[in-house]
Design a protein around this nucleic acid. Structure first.
Length: 216
DNA sequence: TTGTGTTTTACGACCTCC
DNA sequence: GGAGGTCGTAAAACACAA
């Protein structure tokens, strides 16, 4: 059993001490954290913090030292973790039961669950963030690939436009008075057939230029 | 040993639900 | 209105590098 020496007094440092510590705490505070001020105006009152001074001798300071928070034992934490794994919320009866089994104040059990839920929530948020980041990175990568393809296709399109313009100019030079409804030319030894389809809606600029070139 | 960063315990303020 | 929740934070406990 650990001991805490305060002045001439030796205080046992055990689970029971932790239990007592909470009772003292509530008495000293003269308040419960669950007092619930409802919708009163927000008045942030800084609570008194416990002193770090261990050389104190008067009753209040001794109590303050007794109030020092104590780490829960591994066994207590394991039991609390197990309980938390079964159910993250803590109804009154269960809290009393756990507190009794572990020799803790019910308030300690409630606080532990509150903090545990907060840690769990933080972890969940971090996991969700990592998942979303991964998805985002995947989308960004896909976007880069698509942009690269767009550049490549734009370049190809530009080259094709140039080819067509050159051919158009050549055809213009060879043009006769009677327009033909179709014509056939070769580009790079590959035959390309053009067919005039008046009802087709060509709204791509270079096609319009091409037709304009043919039928000026 | 000591300075510093992180984790754990505890609390005050406020919110929600019954 | 009370019980129990979240949120933000203080302070003790702990880990660890320098």
């Amino acid at each position: 059993m650990d001991q805490m020496v305060i002045g001439s007094q030796v205080y046992p440092y055990t689970v029971q001490t932790q239990h007592s510590h909470c009772i003292i705490m509530n008495q000293i505070d003269g308040s419960s954290s669950l007092s619930g001020e409802g919708s009163k105006p927000v008045v942030k009152r800084r609570r008194k913090r416990r002193s770090k001074d261990s050389s104190a001798t008067n009753d209040d300071d001794v109590a303050g030292i007794m109030l020092r928070k104590r780490k829960l034992t591994d066994e207590q934490v394991n039991m609390l973790e197990y309980s938390f794994g079964n159910e993250r919320k803590l109804e009154s009866g269960r809290k009393e039961k756990i507190a009794g089994e572990l020799g803790l104040d019910p308030r300690q059990v409630a606080v532990w669950f509150q903090n545990r839920r907060a840690r769990w929530k933080t972890k969940k948020i971090e996991e969700e963030y990592a998942k979303l980041k991964s998805q985002h990175d995947t989308v960004v990568l896909g976007q880069c690939q698509l942009e690269s393809q767009v550049l490549e296709l734009t370049e190809q399109l530009s080259q094709a436009q140039n080819e067509i313009r050159k051919l158009s100019e050549r055809l213009e030079g060879m043009s006769t008075n009677s327009p033909s409804s179709s014509l056939s030319i070769e580009v790079n030894d590959a035959p390309i057939d053009f067919e005039f389809v008046p009802e087709t809606n060509y709204n791509i600029p270079f096609y319009m230029e091409y037709w304009d070139g043919l039928y000026v």
